[in-house]
Every structure is written in structure tokens, then in C-alpha cells.
Design a protein around this nucleic acid. Sequence first.
DNA 1: GGACCAAATTGGTCCGACCAATTTGGTCCG
DNA 2: CGGACCAAATTGGTCGGACCAATTTGGTCC
Lengths: 247, 247
Amino acid sequence: MPSSNTISREIANILRDEILRQRYRSGDRLPSERDLAARFDASRGAVREALSQLEQLGLINIQPGGARVQSVNSASLAVLGPLLALDDHPDSLLVDQFLQTFSVLASMTAKNAVNAASPDQLIQLKELVVVIERHCSDFNNFEAMQPLWRELLDAMSTIADNLVVRLISNDLKTQLVDQMMKLGVRPDLKRGSIDKFLATLKVSLNKQDGELAGKAMQNHFEEIRAGVGEAIRFKAGSLRNERYGAA
Amino acid sequence: MPSSNTISREIANILRDEILRQRYRSGDRLPSERDLAARFDASRGAVREALSQLEQLGLINIQPGGARVQSVNSASLAVLGPLLALDDHPDSLLVDQFLQTFSVLASMTAKNAVNAASPDQLIQLKELVVVIERHCSDFNNFEAMQPLWRELLDAMSTIADNLVVRLISNDLKTQLVDQMMKLGVRPDLKRGSIDKFLATLKVSLNKQDGELAGKAMQNHFEEIRAGVGEAIRFKAGSLRNERYGAA
DNA sequence: GGACCAAATTGGTCCGACCAATTTGGTCCG
DNA sequence: CGGACCAAATTGGTCGGACCAATTTGGTCC
């Protein structure tokens, strides 16, 4: 979404990743703007724009005398995407934490959405669930299903209309799910579990029982979480084998 | 925390608030960098740094041909603080959404913290609770209590050690709580309710029952939420009276 | 009314310069 | 040897002017 390939963005991205990779550690002083400009063969202005962005991310603290690297723990949520995208072996702990967090937020959203939905919106949600059910039984293609799931979550998010959650999602959603799919990490969910989730969701929609919808969502994410954990451990294992095998 | 009073930051802050106040609406084209430079009597470089920050916030989209304002709904979480700090009459809906969101995250944190705590950490948490209990019975001074509550939450957050939640908190915590206190919005909590919460918390710590701690935290925030809603409505009422009275 | 083209506008980048604050390094004194 | 102190070098903050490529704009022509 940040779109254009400006030099300042490139510099910012490179430095961001280097900081996240701990090439510069917390408390370290970044090279001077003039040195960075020389390193990237760019003007000081471009470097300053890049640093300006990194400061907005909470990754560095610019002060007369030098820019200092800050702890990742004190950065903005927007670094999470880049942080997970660093390597081709996703940090399983971080992914787990993300899923757990996303789980409670999605659960809350589902609950509020179902409770607050108008009759029309309830119908809309039901139709979405039906579509997903059909495509799900046709073929278990995770990639193809993804847009539908996202559509359902988006619809719920729109109905629940919680700006805070929406902003959080902005900094998470796209980057992470896409990233995980790119890495080929996908949970191996039992068909029965998905069906059960969808069924419960339909019941909650029919009874307009937000509490039930929230519970169902939470359970569903709990299973995704377990599945993803499994998938990552497996992938890590095969990666290790590849590397050791090549060496 | 962004510290220094640079011109570019000032410009960024002014433009940010103007965008959040809808002086520039979503889709609108921002004045050109040269015009903005003239308006703020600054150099183009300073303006560019400011715009660079606003783009990082997700508030604008810079492209050759002009910078366009984006919907607040698609911005970064970091705009929430400034958004709530805009006026002296906090948006009750937004505050409510924030508290609800914070509630589920705090609940999750409490649950995980209690479950994952080492014996030493359990003792530490218990001591914190005891301290709070004492100060709470001495005098019901909300402002004075605030640091203690925050210490407790911080301790739990550290123990739970969920980076995602931590990053979210970075973009929320300080700004919002401080802001609400500055505006004199404080919930009118029943003494009994707080005592009950602390008691339940102690039980959960003794039994190392994370589930219980999470429940207690959720209940507590539910009451805060109700209390804050009340306080804001009251404040809005008196504000309205002041204004109408003066006119 | 729509297609088309040229001029004006706009963002992206660079260079060189100056100031104020910090950092640095050396000196001097106890 | 160690600490206080001072001057020079470094660093960030800001400015002005300049050039390019891409977009936008406005008028012309069919």
C-alpha cells in the first residue's frame, strides 16, 4: 500500500530490516546521516526522510548528536509485519502470539457483529457462510478459500464497527496472512472442525447470539493456532534437513 | 516520546490533526509541498519530512501528481492517540471501543501471565496486589493509584511476554490513559467492586489459575467501561450547559 | 462532445551551505 | 592517575536553489 519505489523508502526499508535483524542493537548509535548518504549513494535529504519514517515507527530516536536505536519492544505495531517477513522461517513463537491475539480480537468482533447486525446484515452474513460452506465441500483449497474467509471477517468488522480493532487489523491482517501463505505455512485443519465451526456460526446467526458466535470464532482460531504451530514446526524441520543436507 | 520540537514534526502534527478533524477529507488532494512550505514559512525539505511521517501513519498517500488523504479507517493504530486527544470532549463511542478492546487484551494478558509466572513472579504479583489493596483502602485517590495499576499491568505484560500485545499497547496505553485523566474523566467505581476484583485476583494467583485471573480482569474492565461511559456523558452534559449558558 | 497534445504543476532527488547542540579529544590542574 | 575544563570536530535541523520524470491541466482541433 505504501506504493511507490522511492529511494528514501528503500533506505528506510533496508535500515528497518537491519535494525530488526539486530545488526544495530538497541542503544547503538546509527551512522551519521552523512555517512548513510555516502553508503547508499544518496543525498542527505533522502536519508533524512528515511530516518524520519523510522522514527515514526518507533525504531529509532533522532536527537542532535546522533540517532539511537530503540528497543523493538517499544516500537509501533507497524513493525510486526516486517518483523515476521524477515526470514523464510517464521518465528513460531511470534506467529503463535499473533494468532492468539488475533483470536481474541476476532472473537470480540464476531460477538459484537452478530449482536449489532440488522436483519439485512444477518442475511448477508448467513449467505457468506453458505458460500464458504459450499466452496469448502467442493475442494479443500486453502488459497482459494482465503478471500472468502477474509470477506467474512471484513463483513463482521464492518458491522461491529470498532475503529480500534480496525486500526489494529490494518497493521496486521494483510501483511501477516499473505506472508504466511507465501511461506507455504498452512494449518492442516480437519474437515469436521471447519464444518462444525460453520454450523455453530449459522446457529448463532439464526438466534442472533453474539456470545455463541464469539465462542465459535475463538475455538476455530484455537484450532488454526494449533495447526499453524504444527505446520511451522514441520517446515522448520524440513528446512533444517535441506540445509544440513546441502552442507 | 517523539521528543524534540523540530519544525517538520510540528508541521506533521498540525496536518495530522487537520486531517483527523476532516479539514481535509478522504480522497482530497493535499496542497502541494511548495504551497505547504509557503504556508508554514518553512523549506520544502521540512514539509517533505512531515509528509513522509504522515504517509508512514497511513494518513496520506504520496504520489507524483499530488498527495491524497486516505480514510482514517485505513490508517495505522498510532493515530488513535491523536484522534482521542483532538478535543476536550472525548468521543464516548471511541473511548468505549477502546476500553472494550483493551479489556480483552488485558484479560488475555492476565490469563497468560498467571499461567506462565514463575514462583518468584507469582510472589511479585501478589505483593503488587497487596500494595494496591492498602493504598486503595487508605484513600480513594484515582490519580495516585494510576501508577500502581499501570505497574501491575506492566508486570503482567512482562511475564506474559506477548510481543504483539506489547506493540499494540505501545500505540495506546500512555497516550490514552493520560489523556483521559487530563480531561478529568474518571470512572466512579464502587469500592466493593474493586475489592472484589483484587480478592479474586489474589485467589487466582494463589491457585495459579490464569482462567480465573482473565475473567476477573474482564469483569473489572467491564465496570470501568460502564463507569467511564457515565463520566463522559456527565462531562458532556456539563460542557453543553457551560456553552449554552455562556451564549 | 470527445480525442489529443503541449504547458504548467507536482513529487523525487541532489547539492551546498549555515546554525546550534552535542560529542569528542586533548589539555591542564589537583 | 583522575577529574575538571575547554576548544575543535561532528551531528542533526533547516534553508535555498536546481533539475528531472511523471502527472495533471487546459486548450485546441476534429
